[in-house]
């Protein structure tokens, strides 16, 4: 069917063509989208891991406790309004902060960054409060939820 053969298409045929073309186009796009999503690595899917970090009775009010989850140092702090868990990594340049019980503060020895027990910056260069983890308490056990992007396959 070359250009010359083409008679003016009737309205009916026009819609039929449109329906067919549109359908095939949409179907092809949908299918190709799936194929693309299959091939493109899935960066967005988050995996959450729950760790038990402490028993509530182990940490009296106002005290903190350091522990390692994987290689990440964490601090579990018992504040008036409940338990908080902070990353022990200074928000300034990534040194490890220390809990100073006597002074009731977190202290980063690298550039003298100082954080309050609630994680806020009270001195030094850190640009933002300590990173905090989501805390849930079940049966006197303190759990944190950590987002993990690293799995065996990514």
């Amino acid at each position: 069917m070359t250009e010359k053969d083409k008679r003016p298409t009737s309205r009916r045929e026009f819609f039929a063509n449109l329906f067919m073309g549109g359908g095939v186009f949409v179907a092809a796009i949908t299918f190709l989208r799936d194929v693309w999503m299959y091939l493109y690595p899935d960066l967005g899917r988050r995996r959450y891991t729950k760790y038990m970090v402490a028993k509530t009775r182990d940490i009296p009010l106002g005290k903190a406790r350091r522990l390692l989850v994987g290689r990440v140092p964490l601090y579990v702090v018992h504040l008036e309004d409940g338990f908080r868990v902070y990353s022990g990594i200074c928000t300034h340049l990534g040194c490890l902060v220390k809990w100073e019980e006597a002074k009731n503060r977190f202290y980063c020895p690298c550039h003298k960054g100082i954080f309050a027990p609630d994680g806020t910056v009270i001195g030094g260069p850190p640009p933002r409060p300590l990173d905090e983890y989501k805390v849930t308490i079940e049966n006197d056990l303190v759990f944190i939820t950590i987002e993990q992007r690293q799995g065996r396959w990514s």
Binding site: D34, M37, Y38
Partner: peptide
């Protein structure tokens, strides 16, 4: 298993 369970649309392919 990874294709079938983890990869998006892996089970379709």
């Amino acid at each position: 298993r990874h294709i079938t369970e983890d990869v998006r649309f892996g089970f379709l392919i």
